[in-house]
Design a protein around this nucleic acid. Structure first.
Lengths: 212, 212
DNA sequence: ATTATATAGCGACCGACGGTCGCTTGTCAA
DNA sequence: TTGACAAGCGACCGTCGGTCGCTATATAAT
C-alpha cells in the first residue's frame, strides 16, 4: 500500500478483514488479553498507529468480527427457516449450522459474552443489536412450533437463550464426552423430550438423529 | 496491622478474605480488566506491593475466590443429596441452591470460564480440579436417577454440563424474561420433560413448581 | 513544470497497568 | 542492648492500549 494514494472502499474493507483474520488467530491462540495491538500490527505488516486508522480500539476488532459473522449466520438461519416447515427439524438444522462457525470466532464470542457489560456504550449497543436479531430469529421458530401445537407453551425467550447457550457450552468445553455432532444431537433430544423416562421403563428411547 | 509483629494464620486468612471481598466488589462493578491492583490495594488500605504478599497475581485472587466458594457449594450439594432421595427433586434443590451464590461471584465465575484456557498452568489446574469435583457430584444424581429408571439413559456428562451452564445463563442474562426463580423452574421442567407437546394437544402441562 | 491538497503510514510519546525488589520500620527473644 | 525476622512499602521495570503530529507520496489545479 503505497503512501500517497487513496484507498478504495474495497481496499479498505479488504485491509480490515485481513486485520480481523490475524487478530482472531492470535486471540484464539493466546487469549484476548494477551494479544497486543503491537503484535497484530506486526503480523499485518503495518505500524501500530496505522492499525488505529482501521479500528478505533482493540475491543472494536472483536465487536466488528462478531457483527460480520453474525450477519452471515442470521442470513443462513433465515434460509433454513424458509426451507424447513417442521419446527423440530428446523431447530436441529439451525443448531447444526452453528457448529460450522470457526473456532476462533467462538473464542471471541465467549470473551465478548463475559466482558460485554463492561465494554463502551457503543460496542455494547452494537452487540446487543445483533444478538437480539439472532435471538428473535430463532424465537420465531419456537413460537411457530407452539402455534402449531408441536411445542408446549413455554417461556420462548428462555428456551432460545438456553439453546444458544447450550450450543456454546458444547463447543467450548475442554472435556467433551463425544463428538460435537453427537453432543449436539443429544442436546436437542434433551430439549425436545427431556431426560425423564416417561414412556415407561424401556430406557432406550432413541430419538431420530440428524448427523451422519 | 502494626509493622513488627508476626501475623497468625487466622489473621492472614482474614486479611485474604478481606482482600477478596474488596476485589470481587470492584470486579463486579467495573469488570476484571478494569479493576486494578492499585485500586484494590488502596481500598484495602495497604500498598500495592503488600497485596502481593497475599496473592501472587491478580488472577490468583479470582481463582482463590472461586475455590473457596465452590468448596462451600459442593458441601451444600452433598448435604442436599444426602437428604433428598428423589432424583428430580434433588436436581431442583441443587439448582436452587446455586441461585443463592452472590452476584459478584457469578461475574468472576463467568470471567474465569471465558479466560480459563489462557491462565497460568497452576490456576488452570486448580480451577479444573474444583470444577470437576462439582461436576462429578451432580453427575452422581443423574446416574443415580438413571439407575433407578427415573431418568432415561443419556450422556450424563453432557447433561451436567448443560445444567450448570444453563444456570449461569439464567443468572447472567441482561434480558430476563421472568424472575430468576421462575426461569429456573421452567428450565428444570424443560430439562426433565422437554419442550415437545407429546401428551396430546392440551398445551398447558403445568409441571409442579418448586419456588414460592 | 510547479504548486497545493489530500492521505497512507508511522515514530515518539503518554499515563496506567501488573509485577518486582530491596529498604525501612517496628517487635520480640536472647 | 542487640540481632533476627517479618510487615509493609516506595521506586522502579517492561509492556500495554491509545494519541498526535510529522513525513512521504500521488494526484489535481495552475
Amino acid at each position: 500500500m503505497p503512501k500517497g494514494i487513496t484507498l478504495t472502499p474495497e481496499q479498505q474493507a479488504a485491509r480490515r478483514s485481513e486485520i480481523v483474520d490475524i487478530a482472531l488467530r492470535l486471540i484464539a491462540e493466546n487469549g484476548f488479553q494477551k494479544t497486543s495491538m503491537r503484535e497484530i500490527a506486526d503480523l499485518a505488516k503495518m505500524g501500530k498507529s496505522s492499525l488505529y486508522d482501521f479500528f478505533k480500539t482493540k475491543d472494536e476488532i472483536a465487536v466488528y468480527a462478531m457483527e460480520k459473522k453474525f450477519e452471515e449466520i442470521i442470513e443462513q438461519v433465515h434460509r433454513i427457516i424458509d426451507n424447513e416447515p417442521l419446527p423440530e427439524l428446523c431447530l436441529r438444522k439451525i443448531m447444526h449450522n452453528q457448529l460450522k462457525v470457526p473456532h476462533q470466532y467462538r473464542i471471541v464470542l465467549m470473551w465478548l459474552h463475559a466482558e460485554s457489560d463492561y465494554l463502551e456504550e457503543e460496542y455494547r449497543k452494537r452487540l446487543k443489536t445483533i444478538r437480539y436479531e439472532y435471538h428473535n430469529t430463532i424465537k420465531t421458530v419456537i413460537e411457530g412450533g407452539v402455534a402449531k401445537g408441536v411445542f408446549r407453551k413455554t417461556d420462548s425467550d428462555l428456551v432460545v437463550r438456553l439453546l444458544i447457550n447450550s450450543m456454546l457450552s458444547i463447543v467450548y468445553t475442554s472435556r467433551p464426552s463425544a463428538s460435537e455432532e453427537k453432543m449436539l444431537d443429544e442436546t436437542i433430544n434433551i430439549f425436545l423430550h427431556g431426560i425423564m423416562n416417561e414412556g415407561g421403563e424401556k430406557n432406550e428411547p432413541l430419538y431420530p438423529v440428524f448427523g451422519a
